[in-house]
């Protein structure tokens, strides 16, 4: 695999507010992009100013789950949606107007995440299909694999908080 330096050599992601752990989100790990959702969800019809259109399902509770993460973590998108992940999902997820940083990667994201985190604690929440390379035994952070038919709303966020912040979180 290419080195992390190669992955991010031609793109400089914005920085996240210092002092908080990172929550790195794949779009596939937040909403349901493929197949039927296995939890109650509403269908959303996204459009990027008349260019591309995509239907996706937003499970009930997703907005609240994202808001919970945003209160405790610095959020970073890591997806093939690039800069449009935040733009496209802002309305349906209630995201802030100022976009969160993004890493423009679809597969084998771990190296880019570690490079970006530069020693800060992180949790990476995503669908497992993005892992083509096997994950190392000591990834350097917390990796949470999401059921792509449930998205972020299918997770117990208190377990993630405890893994990142410790039992007292």
């Amino acid at each position: 695999m290419p080195s992390p330096a190669a992955l991010l050599a031609k793109y400089t992601p914005a920085a996240v507010t210092a002092g908080r752990p990172l929550a790195v989100l794949g779009v596939d790990g937040v909403v349901v992009l493929e197949g039927e959702a296995r939890v109650p969800a509403r269908l959303e019809h996204l459009s990027a100013r008349g260019k591309w259109v995509r239907d996706l399902q937003v499970p009930d509770g997703t907005r609240e789950a994202v808001a919970h993460l945003a209160r405790r973590y610095g959020i970073v998108w890591a997806s093939e949606w690039g800069p449009n992940a935040h733009l496209a999902l802002a309305g349906v997820l209630g995201l802030p107007a100022a976009p969160w940083p993004y890493l423009p990667v679809q597969f084998n994201k771990l190296a880019a995440i570690r490079e970006y985190a530069a020693g800060r604690p992180w949790v990476w929440i995503d669908d497992p299909v993005v892992d083509l390379d096997p994950l190392p035994g000591e990834p350097g952070g917390v990796i949470v694999r999401v059921d792509p038919a449930r998205g972020l709303a299918g997770l117990d966020l208190s377990v993630i908080d405890e893994a990142v912040f410790g039992p007292a979180a």
């Binding site: 290419p2 591309w52 949606w81 597969f107 993005v130 083509l132």
Partner: peptide, 25 residues
């Protein structure tokens, strides 16, 4: 491919790659 800077107009490409990865699994 790791050099690509995909964006949303590349979604068809990204969806195809994702579906290929699923078939490998």
């Amino acid at each position: 491919h790791s050099e690509d800077h995909l964006t949303t107009t590349d979604q068809g490409v990204a969806m195809l790659r994702r579906m290929m990865a699923r078939q490998i699994r």
